[in-house]
Design a protein around this nucleic acid. Structure first.
Lengths: 162, 162
DNA sequence: GCCCCGCGTGCAAGATTCTTGCGTGCGCAC
DNA sequence: GTGCGCACGCAAGAATCTTGCACGCGGGGC
């Protein structure tokens, strides 16, 4: 899994293509980077096995699924008790409405991307996840009115000498 | 594109499976939901054409690509000039290191997910994107020390009567 | 300098998967 | 009751994926 993933330029170009569309046939990818389908196939196999490609997933449309409101929630827990933090994280991981969550440094402990149908549902979810009895000291909701950029695409800079 | 996306339970189950792994063969998906491969295929075709499935993409490993530091940046521009905001958004969209960005309501204007190799690169990127001459009034960087949950999976609740 | 070996490649055959025309059955409106 | 629309399963053909094989290139070791 964690073998030796030093990627050459061809790997990076293939990854760039796959980050936009993972359904392109091998011969198309090969044409773009100048490789035969089987060479592409072997590189992808290696990239998948080594864990560089973690998954290939479908990206769905929020509106079609009734997600009308996204919001960024900043959360601070009542103390630094590791068990409390672990429980909090587990709860967020289990909640489908929590799309993403990061532990951060500063006056807040976590930043949470919360998806909900509307403001009412957002309130319910917030109360359930961050309200009394959840170990949350305080939280601040930043409603998103516009998605400027979304996606999980990673920057594919070559390892620039510095 | 925007036709008639009322999804039944089978659609939702298929979408749930595809959000985890979009490479499963049709017969496997069919076995899970109790449908023939061709029935699954036709549903996917419809979901893709109607835009419910926006894309199928590869999810890459941050460490393997040298992304050592993620951070959440809260940004406020100097004023509400639409042209200034448009220019700011365009700049973020064009920057690969910006993984996500949302326009938000409150004392901040935007929340940005910024990916960088290390703290030094983070500083460079911050200066370039948010520093003097960029129209940014002030910004606050919240470094992420842990990814609790990441992904773009959407909640697939059935349309519950309320 | 020459040989050997490892590694990635292209080619091609076989296996798997996808795609689609066709006929059937079910539910609903008339 | 009948007709129609819609989704389904089946099966054949097309497209794609997978892998064994031989070749060429480059880096040591002798």
């Amino acid at each position: 899994m964690r073998t030796d993933p030093d990627l050459d330029d061809l790997d990076r170009r293939l990854l760039g293509l796959l980050q936009r569309d993972a359904r392109r046939p091998l011969h198309e990818l090969g044409d773009e980077v100048g490789l035969s389908p089987s060479a592409v196939q072997r590189r992808l196999k290696r990239l998948r096995a080594s864990g560089v490609i973690r998954a290939e997933v479908a990206v769905l449309d929020q509106r079609a699924l009734g997600v009308g409101l996204g919001s960024v929630v900043l959360v601070a827990l009542v103390d630094d008790d590791p068990a409390r933090h672990a429980a909090f994280r587990d709860r967020l991981r289990a909640e489908p409405a929590v799309q993403q969550c990061f532990g951060i440094i500063g006056q807040w402990d976590y930043v949470v991307l919360l998806l909900s149908r509307d403001i009412a549902e957002n309130r319910e979810l917030s109360a359930e996840l961050f309200g009394p009895g959840t170990g949350v000291h305080r939280y601040e909701t930043l409603p998103a009115y516009e998605t400027v950029k979304s996606g999980l695409a990673l920057p594919l800079q070559p390892p620039r000498p510095r």
